[in-house]
Design a protein around this nucleic acid. Structure first.
Length: 363
DNA sequence: TTAGAGAAGGCCGCGCGCTC
DNA sequence: GAGCGCGCGGCCTTCTCTAA
């Protein structure tokens, strides 16, 4: 919804609902079913608010001096729900006129997910090379086995699990998933905290070892900040009322303006395995120091003891204060002229939709 | 030995529900 | 209301099994 609404904002159409109801031939790879789904989704009050913000973001990009400079695009390609083969170097959701790459990010602090080995051993290299393994077994096997033994013991009577982790079969895992356990049963909850601490501390040691020099740390920081060989644009929202319109610089441009002074990694006692990172960056132009903070969660993505864990990278510092993320400049007067009709609350199509509760295409 | 099919693992991002 | 913990859906890649 946000991605297509952003794209519609870049086109020469009077407002969001007009765009959704009529479609847009400039938008490539958007199926009819997607248009219908979009039309239905904006019936919701909260959704229309976010979609409207996305549309305004698209307008701002159209008018901005770094972006389209008022030139309506001929072709906008939407990546849609399909995954790129291999790894995405740039998280672009829209490609405008084969040139401008636009990433849409709304209400999320999550930068990327990867395998722990890719993050902590291979420094997020362009494509993971090593065969990944179960990170938990690598860094805290003893604690993991102890946790599992207690866990299976606590669940006896509810589910028949083998006593040893190494004997856990796919069938056992399927049964385990069906239980949908929200909390750790009985005494296993205390063991989970010990396990989490062991994973965090041992991960910190391995991560530090893989980043011996400042230049290695700098490269990792660029990758965590999703900086790539070409500049791209980040359009989205920090919160439901604060839009986000940024240009993400390349490492080359970053080096001209900033300097990494230190990169610290440390563990933090938390409800799940977690590693904190802090980057101290010098702004060479403003002659000031900037502290960037973030963390990585190491967690099962498909339930307790089911599959290998993943590493979720988060940015804790405000995204619009990141060195190398520049706000878009655009003519607010011209943009507001374009947006004069985007007040969806008073739009007659929206009123009809709400009263009829039907899809726009039927109307 | 090879090709095809299905299963499993890995990656990516979203969102729910609980807690503070 | 925001943050945290974690489960889910969906897609791609890799592995494994089976039949020709």
């Amino acid at each position: 919804m946000t991605e297509i609404s952003t794209a519609l904002g870049m086109l020469d159409i009077p407002d969001l609902l007009y765009g959704i109801s009529k479609g847009a031939e400039q938008l490539i790879d958007v199926s009819e079913s997607t248009w219908i789904s979009l039309a239905k989704s904006v019936l919701d009050e909260k959704s229309i608010h976010i979609a409207s913000m996305a549309f305004k973001n698209g307008r701002a990009f159209l008018e901005s001096s770094e972006g389209l400079r008022g030139r309506t695009p001929v072709r906008i390609s939407w990546k849609g729900p399909t995954n790129t083969p291999g790894q995405d170097l740039i998280p672009a959701d829209l490609v405008v006129d084969y040139v401008y790459l636009v990433s849409c990010k709304y209400l999320s602090k999550n930068i990327m997910n990867g395998s722990p080995s890719h993050v902590f051993e291979q420094q997020l290299s362009n494509r993971p090379t090593k065969k990944t393994s179960d990170w938990y077994q690598k860094v805290a096997l003893v604690e993991l086995e102890r946790l599992y033994e207690c866990f299976s013991h606590e669940l006896r009577g509810e589910i028949n699990l083998p006593s040893k982790l190494s004997m856990l079969s796919s069938e056992n895992k399927k049964e385990l998933k069906k239980l949908k356990l929200k909390k750790w049963p009985g005494e296993s909850s205390a063991l989970y905290l010990e396990f989490a601490q062991a994973v965090s501390e041992n991960t910190v040691k391995l991560w530090q070892k893989s980043l011996p020099k400042l230049v290695d740390q700098e490269r990792l920081l660029w990758r965590m900040l999703r900086m790539a060989d070409v500049t791209y644009f980040l359009l989205g929202a920090k919160s439901v009322s604060s839009p986000l319109r940024l240009r993400v610089a390349t490492p080359w441009e970053w080096r001209k303006n900033f300097e990494l002074k230190a990169f610290e990694i440390f563990s933090k006692q938390s409800g799940q395995p977690r590693v904190e990172w802090v980057a101290v960056v010098n702004d060479l132009g403003k002659k000031m120091s900037i502290n960037l903070t973030g963390h990585v969660e190491i967690r099962w993505s498909h339930g307790k003891f089911c599959g290998s864990p993943e590493a979720k990278i988060y940015l804790d510092s405000p995204i619009d204060g990141i060195p190398g993320y520049y706000p878009l400049n655009y003519d607010t007067e011209q943009s507001s002229h374009h947006m004069q009709e985007s007040g969806v609350e008073n739009n007659p199509i929206m009123s009809t939709l709400r009263s009829s509760n039907q899809g726009i295409f039927e109307i």
